[in-house]
Design a binder for these strands. Sequence first.
DNA 1: ATAAACTTTCAATAATTATTGAAAGTTTAA
DNA 2: TTAAACTTTCAATAATTATTGAAAGTTTAT
Lengths: 168, 168
Amino acid sequence: MELAAAKLKFIEAWGKLGSEWGINRTMAQVHALLLISAEALTTEEIMENLSISRGNANMTLRDLIGWGLIEKQHKAGERKEYFFADKDVWNIARQVAKERKKRELEPVLKVLTELSTVEGDEKDPEFKTFKKSINDINKLANNVDKTLETMLKAEESWFWGSVLKVFK
Amino acid sequence: MELAAAKLKFIEAWGKLGSEWGINRTMAQVHALLLISAEALTTEEIMENLSISRGNANMTLRDLIGWGLIEKQHKAGERKEYFFADKDVWNIARQVAKERKKRELEPVLKVLTELSTVEGDEKDPEFKTFKKSINDINKLANNVDKTLETMLKAEESWFWGSVLKVFK
DNA sequence: ATAAACTTTCAATAATTATTGAAAGTTTAA
DNA sequence: TTAAACTTTCAATAATTATTGAAAGTTTAT
């Protein structure tokens, strides 16, 4: 396979993966493009490469900056903004984990905590089932939360070392 | 809060969480409803409870069965089908991990493996960047895959015991 | 102050995804 | 074999989400 074809294939695969996990496909594609580019790219180049409009490119780039996955670069004597992605895959994983934890896991934990205080008739099977499910989910969610917390603080080698020890 | 209100709140939160993670909102809501129901429910009851149509309820229930999250039950002397959810939260987590691994992670691993064989000019920065990114992502994806594999085989207590040991 | 170069916004539109509901299909009982 | 009870299908429609593109906004150089 040619490099050009391989790039297209990667962009497509990354875009698909993103959309399956609740991340806008275009955003994942722009991220993919920047990940495999040696040089920082302009909005213009990104638009052209992925055949997307200026407005879309602009909003997507803002979003990616908001996720901490890409940064702006300025070149001396030029007015254009250039964009490049952090290439450290471990940083990317942490950044995504951090944002999704904040945006999605934490709100759910809050609701679960609230729901686990609901009082009712201990004799009522409906109440007992509700309470048990909520408590069980709550425990699991807290374990996930703790694990992510550790991951956010960890060095890659240490984290995978610790986790993979489990497998021997 | 009343039990009824708490149920609604949980169904809403579970549905939102699902949709943020690429799972159809209605599917997550039906799952939530069955998770907190002491009794198995009929299609009719589910339709009514969530205000959804018969067709939607039917397809969603099939999907949930396909994900291994709910099962049918038959009651003696009745023709109706009843549905109930596995209440073991660890089983649910494993089942979801198993399906998503199969449906999404594995196809991506396949593409990455293919892309990591691309040959090119080692002097070309574009080629070098591409190759490095693909290799790095490949390694991370394989670590995730191994971790999920272990999770699928593990007992809950053993798994979290091992993982949480990391935190002390 | 003006204009060129560039970025941002957002209402309109397109594309995608989910839902409905009625007709067709199936199973069971008599 | 008929009909009632129940399930499935799927074309039409609705709801949601993403994208466009042109106008407005901003910055910089002269």
